[in-house]
Simulated assay, not measured.
Amino acid sequence: MSKEKKLKKPIVSFILLTNIIFWPLFCLVGVTKMLGLSTWLFVVVHCISSWASTFAFAILFKKIYPGQSFIQFVKSKFKHKIKVSVLLSVSTIQALIFLTIMLIVLSKSEVDSIFTLSSWGMLLFYFFKTLLSGPFGEELGWRGFALLELQKKHSPLKASIIIGFWWGLWHLPIWFTTGFTGIDLMKYILFFMISIMSTTILMAAFYNLNQNLIIPIIIHHNFNFFIGIINGNLSDLIMYNAILYGIAAVLIIFINPKKVLYGKKEKSLLYGNPTVM
Rank of each mutant, 00 (worst) to 15 (best):
A159C: 10
K129G: 06
S195Q: 14
I238Y: 03
L131M: 10
I217C: 00
T178W: 00
L209H: 01
S160F: 07
T200L: 00
A204L: 07
F191E: 01
Y188L: 01
S235T: 15
I215H: 00
G182V: 15
T199V: 15
I230T: 01
L237H: 04
A249F: 08
A249D: 15
K153H: 03
L244Y: 02
F145Y: 12
I189M: 07
Y240H: 10
I218S: 13
F191T: 06
L157R: 11
N210W: 05
W166I: 09
L157A: 09
H171A: 08
F206R: 00
G144D: 05
L244R: 06
N241Q: 14
I196Q: 15
A146C: 11
W166P: 03
Q151I: 01
K152M: 12
I214A: 07
F165L: 07
L237S: 10
I161W: 13
F206Q: 01
I174K: 12
F192L: 12
S235G: 13
N208D: 08
G134L: 12
E138C: 04
W170F: 15
L169F: 08
G246K: 14
Y188Q: 14
E149W: 14
S198D: 07
G134C: 03
M239N: 02
T199L: 15
E139R: 01
Y188M: 04
Y240I: 04
K152I: 05
M203A: 03
W167Y: 12
K129T: 11
W170R: 03
L169Q: 09
A146F: 15
I215T: 01
W142D: 03
T199I: 14
L244T: 10
I215L: 00
L209F: 03
G168S: 11
T199G: 15
I174Q: 06
G228T: 09
